[in-house]
Design a protein around this nucleic acid. Structure first.
Length: 1059
RNA sequence: GGGCGUAUAGCUCAGUCGGUUAGAGCGCAUCCCUGAUAAGGAUGAGGCCCCAGGUUCAAGUCCUGGUACGCCCA
């Protein structure tokens, strides 16, 4: 219809079939911004119940990658979902600003290497550069966040480096200190004595070198316990590859459950782990029969190998440790807590002293005999010689192993005890376990698995870091070692006696603040450390508001949170620090639900890395496929809790299968709603009640409401993948079954009764599915929403309410019948394909054999007949039994329930029985007799699967007991009807190719050289004319210019002209 | 070395309460349908459901042990 004939503008804006999704998204972004849609969504829920979301701050270090998009999709979907359900969901963005990665990046930029360089460069200047670097990267994150449609308030983002944030962190540490949970102790770190610095894990990994060290077996004479007999001395045989640590030997560890035995060579007696007897002692040693379980040996004392350093507390006895192995050595492990993390942990649990004779430069203390002033590694040789001279050395071999070296200077590293500040999290372990028990983890296995395991093995939190760019530890100490923990700048100002409210609470400025120790009046200086960045981010529930110094009421109204989400690597990172900081400070965790995502891999299944060249850049990917496609992938592709591969192919598929299928259905709707007798929302009132509509409509509304229920339930349990699968299946059903089967009704126009129901039904489906998809794909749904929305509906789908399930429309019986209908169509199509008779050729009838076919409503049988282009559908039982073959198979699922162990026997009997007789019995009485081991057994209709097939002259397809057979006889009448359909198709093609609008009327002329074609056109002229919107259908040439078409295959020419 | 997870078609993944013919999509081949569609449909090729035991009338599914990969930790 032309514009002149339709002065009123069409009811719906056009949704052209060709669509550029990224372009649509930019348009939507502009509209969101112009209409302040995000702000309004917050405004209109104000006063509603809060649903508190906490943003885990990305480290603003480096550029954002697609893996950042993953978590951010999940951080967006659920707030949108909950907002549609009426909750008020504040979303404060945040940036994690501190930390070693930032320092390392800046070091690289400045060409610095190591702490000495940084200090020469100047800490103030260095930290300024760190701050700058963070701000640079924040911009890139902001751009990506906006582009992907992640609604989060970035104008009021919190930054862990802001003074207010730092002050909140200080406050919380003071609370912890006041609870007696902040303390100082030694921490074992890999340490380079030449550079005078500890190394971070990633640095450690770079510096492993294969070296040869002495491996020594040393005698430690037993001095107490059952073996302490001066007449028959026995020694513990102890193995170590670091002889220099023997100077500070503190204990010997054994495994509590390993068997230890005494062995002798006739002259001396040694104790070793039984499994290592041979490998440690070699030839000539016999067990004496004395044996001890490790646990029995606890606290036996021994004579230590060197008396060079003083021990002020009792030491030098056997301790128990689970980490001891019997893989190599002797099963008796030398312990020196200052030089090993395991040693430290074990010795600490026994209250043993930490004795450290090695100075920070790697040399032994000057005054020591034998090794005074000697570099630790160099001391090995001297010490081994001395042991040998004193008869303590049992064996000495070279041992080749991989040992960490400093990646800068190749100096061998020491594991070295350095003073460190700890939080005694072990004191609140039970409380943490209790809090975890009340937390909902998605997926559930993390709760008791990876995370629960981590909590159960909780160790105190080593809080301090000897670095520069971090929250300074707010601890001041004086020479007397009195500790003052400061909770705010105001407090610090009070102590220092000057106004420090404008002080940058970073190094080096805070380091310059000194005050008189409140206890002794001596000068108190800040300890040099900064704190672990995980503590920063774990403080965000209160620190993001600057609470309690500022906004304390806001914090209280938003604590604890409902929902956090990150990838799985955060279990021991942010998920832990969020739970632990809040439990330390407030006695409870900060979140109720936590979603834990798997990692995103490149298309080749490897981690994305610049090095491998397999990186997908998020902005580029979104410009190519659209942010919605990326979002759908993240939320609904595969299983978000496992690692997933992302690539262009996967995204293209989502665009085609999900987004365009959905969009094209909406596009189809607007095309026909705008055509002819237009359809607008006012007509919704004219449509029949759902119960009065055709079965196809009732079916799709039933499916729709099942999907509403399913998607709602899935999202409530944070299962976006299940929601996605339901939506994909529904969109496919809607487009490829409902619309496909209803096309004729849409063509018939909005004012016809069948059209009224179809338009109303499709509108309702599109409206609702748009709402359901909105949290996942906010762009395209809003684009469609704006085109389709009712006049009184919100301007954006994101301001609309989440749909309610209309239970009364759900009809599971109808779903099953439609499923059967569709299976029969599939079988019929298979039969057609097999026979080679194309679908346009009508056939007289199809025979159907299927349980439930008898009850299939006429409307649904009509769908099958129409789809298969057959005149009639008959039950297979209507043909004489002689013409049909039967195959009977056991239905194990039902048989198993009744017969259990006898199932295979009954199954065999069913297969052996005469199929025809069995079917006849079942059909007439519902039961059939079979012989099982000579005994009669009755089986029911549900316990057998009957497949029936006509014998000859039919195209047959059968599956799982359902059969469709097509009558292949083509009568002249059928042939002419088929030809008429060919003609319709040819004319439709011509209409389309000559650019006619779908509702344009035409005049049509035809001339046939083939008499059969001529007869067919003449006979079916009315039908053809109606199908192709021909006002007039005339035999002969046109009376003027017209579009001419040749169809030589049918001996036909025709001409058409727009009216 | 420890904890946790994953393993199903060439690729990406579903697979409900354990039920005997294990599915979908992509890709490939052949064909069909089409006046919304960048679509849709049919057929074919393609499977040691990681391996080995066990439980069971029946195991891709449950149990035990192992292998490979991933994450976290040491």
């Amino acid at each position: 219809m032309s514009q002149e004939q339709r002065p009123a503008s069409p009811p719906f804006p056009a949704l052209p079939a060709q669509v550029d999704l990224p372009a649509v998204e930019h348009e939507v972004l502009r509209r969101w911004s112009d209409q302040k849609v995000f702000e309004r969504s917050l405004e209109q829920t104000r006063g509603g119940r809060n649903w508190v979301f906490f943003e885990g701050p990305p480290t603003a270090n480096g550029q954002p990658g697609v893996h950042h998009v993953e978590a951010r999709v999940f951080k967006d979907v659920f707030p949108r979902f909950k907002t549609m359900k009426g909750f008020h969901v504040d979303r404060k963005a945040g940036w994690d600003c501190h930390g070693l990665p930032v320092e390392v990046a800046v070091e690289k930029e400045l060409g610095l290497s190591g702490k000495k360089d940084i200090e020469t460069f100047g800490v103030a200047e260095f930290n300024d550069r760190c701050r700058e670097s963070v701000l640079r990267n924040v911009d890139a994150f902001t751009a990506m966040t906006e582009r992907m449609g992640y609604w989060v308030n970035m104008d009021e983002a919190y930054r862990t480096m802001d003074p207010e944030y730092v002050e909140s962190v200080w406050w919380s540490l003071k609370v912890i200190w006041e609870k007696g949970l902040l303390f100082r102790d030694y921490r074992i770190s890999p340490y380079c004595p030449r550079c005078g610095t500890t190394l971070a894990d990633h640095e450690l990994a770079q510096g492993y070198e294969t070296v040869t060290d002495p491996s020594v077996y040393v005698r430690f004479p037993v001095t107490s316990g059952p073996l302490a007999d001066p007449g028959r001395p026995t020694s513990l045989l102890v193995w170590t590859t670091t002889p220099w640590t023997l100077v500070s030997n503190t204990a010997v560890a054994v495994h509590p459950e390993v068997q230890y035995v005494v062995a002798t060579n006739g002259t001396e007696r040694l104790l070793v782990a039984e499994p290592l007897l041979g490998s440690a002692l070699g030839e000539g040693w016999q067990p004496t029969g004395e044996r001890f379980e490790g646990a029995e040996m606890e606290r036996w004392t021994y004579q230590r190998p060197f008396e060079l350093v003083a021990f002020e507390e009792p030491a030098h006895y056997v301790v128990l440790a689970d980490y001891v192995t019997v893989e190599d050595g002797t099963g008796l492990v030398h312990q020196s807590p200052a030089f090993g993390a395991d040693d430290m942990a074990v010795c600490r649990s026994y209250g043993l002293p930490v004795v450290n004779p090695v100075r920070a430069d790697g040399t032994f203390e000057a005054g020591l005999d034998l090794v005074g002033g000697v570099f630790f590694k160099t001391a090995d040789a001297t010490l081994v010689t001395d042991l040998k001279e004193r008869g303590l050395l049992f064996r000495h071999v070279a041992y080749e192993h991989s040992y960490p070296h400093c990646w800068r200077c190749h100096t061998p590293l020491m594991y070295y005890a350095l003073p460190s500040w700890y939080i005694r999290t072990t004191a609140i372990k039970d409380r943490l376990l209790e809090q975890n028990a009340a937390t909902n983890w998605v997926p559930g296995n993390i709760k008791e698995g990876r995370y629960g395991e981590w909590l159960r093995n909780n160790v105190d939190w080593a809080l301090s870091r000897s670095r520069y760019w971090g929250t300074p530890l707010p601890v001041w100490t004086c020479v007397e070692d009195h500790v003052t923990v400061v909770g705010s700048l105001a407090e610090l100002g009070g102590l220092a006696g000057r106004d420090l409210s404008a002080l940058d609470p970073h190094r080096p400025y805070v380091d310059d603040v000194v005050f008189d120790c409140p206890e002794c009046g001596g000068t108190a200086r800040r300890v040099p450390e900064v704190i672990d960045v995980w503590y920063d981010s774990g403080s965000m529930p209160f620190a993001q508001w600057g609470a309690p110094h500022r906004n304390d009421e806001v914090f209280r109204a938003n604590f604890p949170g409902q929902y956090i989400c990150e990838a799985i690597d955060q279990t021991r990172g942010w998920f832990y620090s969020m739970m632990t900081v809040s439990t330390l400070v407030f006695g409870q965790t900060s979140y109720k639900n936590v979603v834990c995502l798997g990692h995103i891999l490149a298309e080749d299944g490897r981690k994305m890395s610049k090095h491998l060249g397999n990186v997908l850049e998020p902005m580029a990917v979104m410009e190519r496929h659209g942010a919605d496609a990326v979002r759908w992938f993240m939320a609904a592709s595969g299983s978000p809790w496992t690692p997933r591969r992302v690539g262009h192919a996967a995204l293209e598929e989502i665009v085609r299968k999900v987004l365009l299928t959905y969009y094209n259905t909406a596009s189809f709707f607007t095309l026909y709603a705008n055509a002819g007798e237009t359809w607008s929302h006012a007509r919704l009132a004219d449509a029949p009640a759902p119960a009065e509509r055709p079965l196809l409509d009732r079916w799709v509304l039933s499916e729709l409401n099942r999907v509403v229920r399913g998607v709602d339930e899935a999202l409530e349990r944070f299962d976006t993948a299940a929601a996605g699968r339901l939506l994909t299946a529904f969109v496919d059903d809607l487009s490829n079954w409902y619309v496909r089967r209803s096309r004729r009704r849409f063509w018939s126009g909005a004012s016809t009764p069948e059209g009224a129901a179809a338009f109303a039904t499709l509108f309702e489906c599109l409206e609702t599915v748009t709402l359901l998809m909105a949290p996942l794909v906010p762009f395209l749904t809003d684009h469609v929403w704006v085109a389709l929305r009712r006049p009184d509906a919100p301007e954006s789908v994101h301001l609309a309410r989440w749909p309610q399930v209309r239970e009364e429309l759900i009809d599971t019986g109808l779903s099953e019948q439609m499923a059967l209908t569709r299976r029969l169509v599939e079988l019929g199509r298979a039969a057609r394909a097999d026979s080679g008779v194309r679908t346009r050729q009508p056939l007289a009838r199809a025979l159907v054999g299927a349980a439930g076919f008898g009850d299939l409503p006429e409307q649904l049988r009509g769908q099958v007949a129409d789809e298969l282009n057959v005149v009639r559908l008959d039950p297979l039982s209507s043909v004489g039994g002689d013409l049909v073959d039967y195959v009977v198979k056991p239905n194990f699922r039902t048989l198993g329930k009744r017969f259990a162990k006898r199932t295979p026997l009954v199954a065999k009997a069913i297969q052996a029985a005469d199929a025809r007789k069995l079917v006849e019995q079942v059909r007439s009485t519902g039961w059939a007799h079979v012989e099982v081991a000579g005994e009669p057994v009755e089986v029911s209709a549900e316990e057998v699967l009957v497949t029936e097939q006509p014998r000859e002259g039919w195209a047959v397809a059968a599956e799982s007991g359902e059969t469709v057979a097509l009558d292949l006889e083509i009568t002249p009448e059928l042939q002419r009807a088929g030809l008429a359909r060919e003609v319709v198709r040819l004319v439709q093609d011509a209409r389309k190719s000559s650019g006619l609008d779908i509702s344009d009327r035409i005049d049509l002329w035809w001339a046939a050289t083939d008499p059969v074609t001529a007869q067919a056109v003449a006979e079916h002229g009315a039908v053809i004319g109606a199908e192709v919107l021909a006002r007039d259908l005339a035999e002969g040439a046109p009376d003027g210019p017209a579009h001419a078409v040749e169809a030589p295959d049918f001996g036909l020419r025709f001409w058409l002209r727009k009216v």
